[in-house]
Amino acid sequence: MDVNGASVAERVRPAGPPGDNDRLLRRLRDGLPLVARPFLAIGQAIGQSEAGVIAAIRDLVETGAASRFGIIVDHAALGFTANAMVVWDVPDERVDAVGAALGGRRGVSLCYRRPRRPPVWPYNLFTMIHGRNRDEVRALVEELADGCGLAGLPRELLFTVRRFKQTAPCYGRDGRE
């Protein structure tokens, strides 16, 4: 599913010492067990204390290895079946402020800056926008343009047609997240 746009695949398993942390990360792939004390259950499975598991997860988030810890929703299952990579040509002196403003807006899963490659590629700001259908995506783009100071700037919507491949990154070892 193209929920996270091209860049979700750029995510990788965090670097860290092998051993306990690796075992914890492998456990976390499948998510927390849905029991009253999930961190205790994980700890019992890998030989760590409940407090140790909680501290290790907090560390993942605080060091930035994990972008978040929470409920990972499947947008397609929730009806968000239309999505587009929306690209914008934002003046360099404004792009950081605009990028920061776009993040966290409704329907925006990713926002990042990449280089322009004139003349074939004039856009420097990339967003992934999700909606229940293409009209909703178009409406969200208008809303973002008006709300984040992007009205009138060159932009294009690249609707997703199909996915050929989406796998975890490979680094020559088990790199699955």
Binding site: P14, A15, G31, L34, L60, V61, S67, G175
Partner: peptide, 13 residues
């Protein structure tokens, strides 16, 4: 819901 868990950042490795 895919899971309750972590989403990892890009560019760590």
């Amino acid at each position: 819901v895919a899971r309750v868990g972590a989403a990892f950042r890009p560019h760590r490795v």
